[in-house]
């Protein structure tokens, strides 16, 4: 529920309100994109926590740059077949923690 609502608000922001704050984010992916990924992949509380931390860090006192969301994930029941890649899970040094990189070439089903 909250997850869906948050994602809806984030999409809405990215579509319509982003011009008010255009080109201000110091990170890649942008704060809104980061938050979206967090809400898509993470526990809701963690998603809020990391998104807020990210926004707090998004100012002149921090360097900015690349900062991908990192989530804990347990891969079980892996089915091997040909798929469209939407996200890349990049394993980190910590066990079961993965960086998420969205595949920008992924076309959501039929659009374009």
């Amino acid at each position: 529920m909250i997850k869906k609502l948050s994602l809806l608000m984030l999409n809405f922001y990215q579509k319509f309100l982003t011009i008010l704050s255009y080109g201000s984010c110091r990170y890649h992916p942008t704060c809104s994109e980061y938050a979206k990924l967090q809400f898509e992949h993470n526990n809701i509380l963690f998603a809020f926590y990391y998104s807020i931390i990210r926004i707090l860090k998004c100012n002149q006192l921090f360097d900015g740059g690349f900062d991908y969301p990192c989530v804990k994930k347990d891969f079980t029941n892996i089915v091997f077949k040909k798929i469209n890649v939407k996200y890349w899970y990049i394993p980190t040094k910590t066990n079961k923690n993965y960086l998420i990189i969205k595949d920008w070439e992924f076309k959501n089903g039929t659009t374009r």
């Binding site: 201000s24 110091r26 998004c58 100012n59």
Partner: peptide, 14 residues
């Protein structure tokens, strides 16, 4: 990153 400069103001100030 290569140039060591980040021109963006950041989301927080806004």
């Amino acid at each position: 990153k290569k140039e060591g400069a980040n021109p963006m103001g950041g989301c927080l100030p806004i």
